[in-house]
């Protein structure tokens, strides 16, 4: 059998907490992105780590083009990302780049752009965290491959409903918190050719990305978000001047570009004067 080329994954990490907060450095001395990359290595992906403080905010054009699946971890500095960069990333998702948005990335500019809603939710950062139970709602889904019926995370940040997102295409995980709240914590969306997965667990001061089941979910999600083909299309407006049915009314007049229309109007007026 032909060897499958490794999926090109870019783990984009805001990576400011790790510079600014001692408690985060303690939990993730290798940074959050570094931890995710290290744990995903055994799965055979072609991994690149980039951060907000890298050139082009971690997204040079060549990397945007070559990335097949992006993992996004951001929190405090979403607004620093340039709108022009978000335009490019959004276009890349529509063209087929998979996107996995983690935890506080629910407020990332890119995610909000792709969802079209506020993506607000309810939240609580309880002292020492609180227990989260992540229920697997679709055990046969590819993202749930090799995952038990539920995961217990002893320390987590509460993210609860109402979560202002569009209706997910698929709801794979649902979280319950010690305080009683619940959240749709693992959701898929498709935008254009791009497959998106939002996954809520992953606070910066709790070692959630060292949990082997969480990493398995990320690996499954990468494989799922990877779009293996280029077929399908992304047409803005599809003008269909000739109908399929013979004899049905068709379009007979076509607008000229505005510049030409105005130029011809002026020319006509000048001729009329003469």
């Amino acid at each position: 059998m032909n060897k499958v080329a490794p999926i090109k994954v870019t783990v984009w990490n805001e990576c400011r907490h790790e510079k600014e907060d001692a408690d985060v450095q303690e939990v993730y001395p290798e940074t959050i992105g570094g931890c995710i990359v290290n744990h995903l290595k055994p799965y055979g992906f072609d991994l690149t780590l980039s951060t907000l403080d890298d050139p082009q905010q971690g997204w040079p054009d060549a990397l945007i083009e070559s990335t097949e699946v992006a993992i996004w971890w951001g929190h405090r500095y979403h607004d620093e990302l340039s709108d022009a960069l978000i335009d490019k990333l959004q276009a890349r998702v529509l063209a087929g780049m998979g996107l996995i948005v983690l935890h506080s990335g629910h407020h990332a500019k890119l995610f909000k752009r792709l969802m079209g809603t506020s993506c607000n939710l309810s939240w609580r950062e309880a002292e020492g965290g609180e227990r989260e139970r992540v229920w697997c709602l679709k055990p046969s889904h590819p993202i749930a491959y090799n995952i038990p019926p539920y995961l217990e995370l002893p320390q987590s940040e509460m993210y609860g409903e109402p979560f202002d997102i569009p209706e997910p295409d698929e709801l794979i995980f649902n979280s319950w918190y010690q305080g009683g709240e619940v959240l749709r914590s693992g959701c898929t969306f498709q935008r254009g050719r791009g497959r998106i997965f939002f996954f809520a667990p992953g606070h910066e001061t709790f070692p959630i990305y060292r949990n082997e089941h969480i990493i398995q979910i990320l690996a499954n999600a990468i494989a799922r978000a990877h779009q293996p083909h280029q077929s399908g299309w992304n047409l803005g407006n599809w003008g269909r001047p000739i109908p399929l049915e013979a004899g049905a009314p068709k379009q007979t007049y076509y607008k000229k570009p505005r510049k030409l229309m105005l130029a011809e109007k002026v020319e006509k007026a000048e001729k009329a004067k003469k």
Binding site: M1, N2, V4, P42, Y43, G44, F45, Y145, N146, Q216, A219, N220, I222, A223, P228, H229, W233, L235, G236, N237, W238, G239
Partner: peptide, 28 residues
């Protein structure tokens, strides 16, 4: 856009491509 429409309307959809359905389970 017309080029895209040409591509969509005239593509040979009868061709079968099994290459993207190869088993690809990703475990460590």
């Amino acid at each position: 856009t017309a080029l895209q429409i040409l591509s969509i309307e005239c593509r040979d959809y009868s061709a079968r491509d099994f290459s993207t359905f190869a088993s690809d389970k990703r475990t460590p």
